[in-house]
């Protein structure tokens, strides 16, 4: 147990270090967020709440695909061979999930800030909405991390992630949009059941990743 925590921590540190040293990908995603939101700002001047909500989550979806796609694709075949000899597949995939979750939390916060800056923030319960954004970003990042692993093994690009992932993510997106709607009105309470269902789905993804990833990573 203690050793696997150490392994996960080392792998996580390696990913963070790589991110800090090769900043192009981080700024690339940042530019992606900025450019998309700017285009939307020019196209739709003053969206009403429902449009704002829908656009926000669709953008989160695409940001997530772009942010997470790299995580497994960047590992070359020979480096994967090295990882196979030093860590267990579960530790490897947990480190990746953790890193992508952190990355997506940062990206969610940034896109929320940019969205509020350009198009105003209709959320009346700001704290609750920020929490939903974090939860949503986390859910998206977990699902797409695993799909990125599949895409990387199939030697495909991010396009196949979208094909594989869109049908799976529909229920979570609908739930996120519904609970965000509650955070937009001042006296509606954010319903607890969908939040718990999202957390349960996240737990399921982590479990499935632990069970299924060993089959993906050996050639």
């Amino acid at each position: 147990m203690e050793q696997s925590i150490k392994h996960i921590w080392t792998l996580l540190k390696k990913d963070i270090l790589l991110e800090v040293r090769q900043q192009f990908s981080f700024y690339g995603i940042l530019l992606y967020i900025g450019a998309t939101i700017f285009v939307i700002f020019l196209a739709i001047e003053d969206p009403d709440t429902r449009v704002w909500n829908g656009l926000f989550w669709i953008i989160q979806l695409f940001v997530c695909i772009n942010a997470v796609a790299k995580s497994f694709l960047q590992e070359s075949q020979s480096r994967m061979l090295y990882f196979q000899s030093v860590v267990s597949p579960q530790n490897f995939v947990f480190a990746k999930l953790l890193f992508n979750s952190l990355l997506m939390l940062v990206m969610s916060l940034l896109s929320l800030l940019l969205f509020s800056l350009f198009m105003g923030n209709p959320a009346e319960q700001l704290l609750a909405f920020t929490g939903i954004v974090f939860l949503g970003g986390w859910s998206l990042s977990l699902v797409f991390s695993f799909l990125a692993a599949i895409a990387a093994k199939a030697q495909q690009n991010a396009a196949i992630m979208a094909i594989l992932g869109f049908p799976l993510i529909i229920p979570q997106l609908i739930m996120l949009i519904k609970i965000s709607d509650a955070a937009f009105s001042i006296n509606a309470k954010v319903p607890l059941t969908p939040v718990l269902m999202l957390v349960a789905l996240d737990a399921m993804v982590i479990l499935l990743a632990a069970i299924l990833f060993p089959y993906l990573w050996k050639d």
Binding site: I150, A154, L164, L168, P171, M175, K178, L208, L212, L216
Partner: peptide, 28 residues
Amino acid sequence: KKARISSVYNIFAFAFLFPSIWIIPRLL
């Protein structure tokens, strides 16, 4: 490789399918 990767996706997606069928009617 085809068999292994598509089996993994099959299982992963199927695990999502049942919650989806159960959740969506309760939302809409």
